[in-house]
Amino acid sequence: MIQTVGFIGLGKMGLPMARNLLTNGYDVYGMDVNDSAISEFQSYGGKTGKLLDWIHNVQTIILMLPSSKIVNQVIDEIIDHYSSESLTIIDMSSSYPEETRTNFKKLEENNIEFLDAPVSGGVKKAVTAELTIMIGGRVDIFTKCKRLLESMGKSLFHVGPIGSGHLIKAINNYLSGTHLLATCEAVQLLERFEVEPETAIHVFNQSTGRSGSTEYKFPSFILTESFDSGFSLELLRKDLEMAKNLFLQTEAETNLPQLVFNRFDDASQALAKDADHTEIYQYVSSYLLQRGKLNEKDSETIHCSGNSSISI
């Protein structure tokens, strides 16, 4: 029996994910506010229409939406129109864990099963179905949906109860943003000493300073100056705000999440509204370096241990 799926959110990530479901034999209904995304989805063989047109034909609905606010609205609409015997919702967006738990309670009261299953890997791995998927929720529901998820991802991890997937995704993106910001600042500082960025990245990748930013983002999007990873600065800013709030809510004794968020928040205001998140490199150059000169003065003295000092 062919499983029928609803897919709401055919953006840069959602469209290739939905296409991979079609490729794996699923019957897929797609929805999006973007008409061009709908047209492209139809060209792949997908079906379209309003929620009321297909909600009673599907066994699973996948959400790939830009914010918890929109996820909440869609879930409320599904609850209002749902009257089938069996339905599972999988929220693959980057949603707030607390709101995910609230949605779980609402859906449970209406006999609708729920998983949170955010992804990592970017557009490239969404296209090749090699995403990492972090799943929160009941193990039996995850087991039931495993083949469906495997059609979109290569590495599946059941990480805990409902909300755990969104929690670990927020922390993952906090680490990713921190790595990226630190690497941008480090590379531009080295450039001040006439070390070429390409050389710096090559050295980092052969050393302990390597990260996803040095191994993938810099070579692919920053050093090439394409800045087209497919993941917006605004979305990363939102994820960093989420992580910052999670640390604050637990009264963790650290100010690093706040500092990282502040940099990305400032960058989102300074750069274009649709800026790619890798364009943080250009924002860093506005405050850290100005064509080979330190911002505040051309030279400073860094005092080292003992009596020695280095003039820069």
Rank of each mutant, 00 (worst) to 15 (best):
S220C: 11
D276V: 08
K217M: 00
S95W: 03
M17V: 00
K50R: 03
E296Q: 14
D266T: 10
P161N: 10
L259Q: 07
A270D: 05
L87K: 08
T199Q: 12
T224D: 00
Y96E: 14
I55A: 04
Q249G: 13
N34E: 10
F247N: 13
S93D: 11
L223N: 03
R19F: 02
L233P: 04
N34F: 07
S151P: 02
F261P: 06
L288K: 12
I2R: 03
T100G: 02
L175A: 03
G153C: 09
S39P: 02
N24I: 01
F142N: 06
M1S: 10
E109Y: 01
N172P: 10
I141A: 05
K50G: 06
N110P: 10
V260K: 09
D266S: 11
H179W: 02
V260S: 15
E198N: 14
K146C: 03
M17I: 03
L189C: 08
T48V: 09
Q258K: 03
G292S: 04
L294W: 13
T214W: 07
F157Q: 15
D116W: 00
I79E: 05
K169L: 12
S84K: 11
L223F: 13
S311F: 15
R210S: 12
N255L: 07
L288H: 08
E40T: 06
Q249T: 04
G165I: 01
Y29L: 07
D228S: 13
T301P: 02
T301V: 11
L246E: 15
K124A: 14
D35L: 14
I135S: 09
Q73K: 13
T208S: 14
I141G: 01
L189W: 02
D265T: 08
K124R: 13
H166Q: 10
Q3A: 06
Y287W: 15
P97D: 05
Q258F: 05
K297P: 03
M17K: 00
G121I: 09
A243N: 06
Y216R: 10
E191Y: 06
R101Y: 02
L148W: 12
K106V: 00
K273D: 11
G136D: 10
N103Q: 06
Y283N: 07
S94Y: 00
K69D: 09
S164F: 08
S286V: 06
I8W: 05
F142I: 06
K144A: 12
K146F: 00
G49S: 09
I62K: 07
